[in-house]
Write a protein that binds this DNA or RNA. Structure first.
Lengths: 328, 328
DNA sequence: TATACAATTGCAAACGTTTGCAATTATATA
DNA sequence: TATATAATTGCAAACGTTTGCAATTGTATA
């Protein structure tokens, strides 16, 4: 069933049907009513693909994001909500696999002629970077969690460094002198900034900053690293994790070692996922406004799509240190 | 840049370019090489929208799902992975809002001519049901977490009833006689089955089954209900929650009441989210294979799309009772 | 060299819309 | 009634591909 069929049923031309569907002027009110009736009776919905071909717009945006983090729900909710409000569809790709797959996925989004791409990630291999720059010549891209130097691609980033600095300073103020830092993967742009802030603060205070391990942002890696390191170094009094999942893993490990939190060891995370406020002890953490990040990024992208021009090159998001029960 | 431009640059017709791009026979090998070179040099990628219009296939599937549950990550990962393997794009819609918005979203997916729809949800209003049946006349749909009686729409469901029955029987076996059940919202198809199993088992054993409250599947609702009910009824020895989030909320509440788990009160959840194994005490729960559910549903949908016919009408997923530290 | 056949290439229709413009019809004015 | 004007309607091109068929070119055989 297409507009032609409706037109034949109504004894008019497709142009007229088109005008009725799009509520455009130039149709006799009586005729309009009749045609609308036939459309409704047949449950006809116009083929957007044909429309897209003509307008060279798909009214879809591509979203590339790693679906592993606990907070990704918040972000994708923001994206879908903003898109729905602006009548954009959301084409999702999980960039959790091999570089090659991701590249294919990005090109596939381009072939599907999405109007823009939202790229959530702070991993960026050489090939990927090149591909993004290449595609950005044809369609707008907004990066989240990452900035690409020598490029004009706008981005939304958190102040990873200062968030991490504040948390570290807090621990030092509280008197901790032997700290374990569980970082994210070394290929992660944001993870490296957080780690740097940690070591900078420790060095500045003349404290040993050698107790750093690299985790995978997962519950399990937090658990394993915390257990192992604390068993070997019984003078550790604080653990700072680069995300909440690892912090929750670390808490489980510390409890399994029959130590108390925060009496024996303080734990602090990063993200403030919903769960952080419901585990016991409630997790102190650095809050990121995940919903806001998704929202701002999507709004920026849509603005660029509509106005062909990025007014803003970079959006910095706030952080907030949330002290709950897991630190003292 | 389109095929015409490439054709002009190469001094051939679009047909020839098309044959090169699609690796079809009928092109002089030397010419093929030359054309491929120009294509690569210009980074040309064919417009799938035009292709779709011609083939009446979008090579996209629509995914409607509530992004609120902690386990949705697992499911959507399975969906995207299977789709990527089969060269389908994923168009996502969050059905977390008002009925009206959801209806619009479903119709919008249809207008975008997705090749099929994956509908994750066990809420189904009258209007939505009607819309699904209507759309199912035009494109295949697979339901997850819900079956629609009097309809031919295939579905993937868990054995909610038996999963819940097993968990309840376990608690009874362990000697619990005063139990609190925190259910999901009453409009949720699965939640009602779980609740029914609970009451059936209790009645069968001649145990009072009146202590039932309705939560919202959220951490907070679990926390609030558990705190309130346990404060009022100090003889409760077990809490069964219809999902893990509420169970984790309940555990926080019980700890805040200075009671011990499982010594004073046992807690059991439903879902087995990753976090369940990393909170302390580790949460006993009914495991659902979330990845498997997403995988099976997507494979079923793609099979129907390709073969125009559902070989299977209904897939029942297994459940597994996982006993950890939160029950005794 | 003429003929048959295979390989290569291009033409043009089709997919389902939108829209500027022309054609037709209805209405108002002189 | 003739004319000017406004309202309604339809025609046809365009969007960027794919593909059956016809046309052309090249090659092998008689």
């Amino acid at each position: 069933m297409n507009m032609k069929d409706i037109a034949v049923k109504c004894g008019v031309s497709v142009s007229t049907v088109s005008r009725v569907i799009n509520r455009k002027p130039g149709v006799n009110p009586k005729m309009r009513e009749q045609i609308q009736k036939i459309i409704d009776e047949n449950g006809f919905r116009p083929n957007q693909i044909a429309k897209n071909l003509l307008s060279s717009k798909s009214e879809n945006i591509g979203v590339v994001l790693p679906m592993v983090h606990s907070y990704f729900t918040k972000r994708i909710m923001a994206v879908t909500e903003v898109c729905q409000k602006n009548n954009y569809g959301v084409m999702m790709v999980n960039n959790y696999y091999s570089q090659k797959n991701i590249l294919n996925s990005i090109y596939s989004l381009y072939e599907k002629r999405v109007d823009g791409i939202l790229y959530f990630e702070s991993i960026c291999g050489k090939e990927q970077t090149a591909a993004l720059k290449e595609i950005n010549k044809k369609i707008p891209i907004v990066l989240v969690d990452q900035e690409l130097p020598e490029s004009e691609i706008p981005c939304v980033v958190q102040d990873n460094y200062n968030g991490s600095r504040k948390a570290t300073e807090y621990l030092i103020e509280k008197g901790h002198r032997k700290l374990l830092y569980i970082s994210g993967p070394s290929y992660d742009w944001g993870a490296n900034l957080r780690k740097k802030a940690f070591t900078d603060v420790l060095k500045k205070n003349g404290i040993d900053s050698s107790c750093i391990r690299e985790g995978k942002f997962s519950l399990n890696s937090g658990y394993k690293i915390a257990k192992e390191v604390i068993q070997e170094n019984n003078d550790i009094t604080a653990v700072f994790c680069a995300n909440d999942d690892m912090a929750i893993g670390a808490i489980a490990a510390i409890k399994d070692l029959n130590l108390n939190i925060p009496e024996d060891i303080s734990v602090i995370g990063f993200d403030d996922i919903d769960m952080a406020n419901y585990i016991k002890p409630r997790l102190s953490t650095v809050r990121q406004d995940h919903y806001g990040i998704g929202e701002k990024a999507t709004e920026l992208l849509i603005d660029i799509i509509k106005n062909k021009k990025a007014k803003i090159k970079k959006i910095y998001m706030d952080y907030e240190l949330i002290i709950r029960e897991s630190t003292n």
